[in-house]
Nucleic acid binder design. Sequence first.
DNA 1: CTAGGATGTGACCGGTCGGTACGGGGCGTC
DNA 2: GACGCCCCGTACCGACCGGTCACATCCTAG
Lengths: 204, 204
Amino acid sequence: MSRTSTKAAPPKAAAAPKAAERILATASELFYREGARAVGVDEIVVRAGTTKPSLYRAFESKDHLIAAYLEGRSADAWSWFEKAAAAHPGDPRAQVLDYIDALSGRALKGGYRGCGLSNAAIEYPEAGHPGRKVSVKHKEKLRERLRDLTRAMGARKPRKLADSLLLIIEGVHVTSQLFGAEGPAAAARGAAETLIDAHMRGHV
Amino acid sequence: MSRTSTKAAPPKAAAAPKAAERILATASELFYREGARAVGVDEIVVRAGTTKPSLYRAFESKDHLIAAYLEGRSADAWSWFEKAAAAHPGDPRAQVLDYIDALSGRALKGGYRGCGLSNAAIEYPEAGHPGRKVSVKHKEKLRERLRDLTRAMGARKPRKLADSLLLIIEGVHVTSQLFGAEGPAAAARGAAETLIDAHMRGHV
DNA sequence: CTAGGATGTGACCGGTCGGTACGGGGCGTC
DNA sequence: GACGCCCCGTACCGACCGGTCACATCCTAG
């Protein structure tokens, strides 16, 4: 961190201080593991080594803290997505397969609790909830990105194939929570391959 | 209501009286629509036109009331399943397709909130929760039934096909909550057909 | 050294959570 | 009419919910 210019040291809004970061990190772990509704703000601040006013200075409500947590989850998911894309440049089929592979790989490990975004949408069905909005936006964008990929493959019905893959992906998320390591997630990649190949051959 | 016989009117244990039934019915609707964690016992008893002691006389705790609600959901799901089976005797492919069709049909209507059993498992990740046990048992049985069907089809890899179909089914449940009527559920039947046909041809 | 702003602190708010003790009241039976 | 049985509702419990207050403390810029 070097000194910048002599005048106007921090031009933009100050970055979040440490307490707020710890709160978000702690809340993210707790929300993911136990579900947002099951976790109280008291537990969050105690485990973050701080207190409630610090929480409410950084986040206007618990619901907005949930939204911030989900924004983080969304960013993580996109980084996985981009990583899979970067691993197979110009090969959309391998990209989506790699993404699904990574997904079911994590799903088959212990402690997996599915997709935080999907879980939150289930916990908060009310349309206006700030967290739910983040989830819905993320999933809509994912649907779009999947369509981009299936179009790039040259699939006959790219939208239908993308939706089919999305069903598989969400299926992985929930079944892994129900069945654990022996769950159907292991079948995800194979199913995705079959679906893609059938669409490429026009067998749909 | 006519008089029954003169002697020994109710020989077996008395059936649940009206209050308990109203509580279960009200709770079931509320739990499904808003999520079990979001609904308090006070709201349940008020809307059922009764009071808390009546609830706790019939159910030993809220968690057990949730379990009772999920038992009902499970029974409903099996009746849909059996209906699809009965509609196509001796044709397991048509049976499973019909079931998925019925599922996505409901999913594309308004007010759909997915599978109550899956939702509850997401809301209550703790292994010991009585409601979660009902959900897990149901889903394991569903996986078995699906395997029976794919075996009856003569699929090359019946377990893998069954798991693939289960991924689709659970995918329908969650995506319908995220996307509403325009969601990917409409692609479910087609995807299932493609998967089944590929497995029958041995293209897996 | 001083002044200001951002941060941490403990106490506290009304409301709701799941759960319970207890006392009446309807009804068929003698 | 008195009894016993079963079912129900009134009132209440301690704990915790999300959220706020006034105040102590610290860091940093000047």
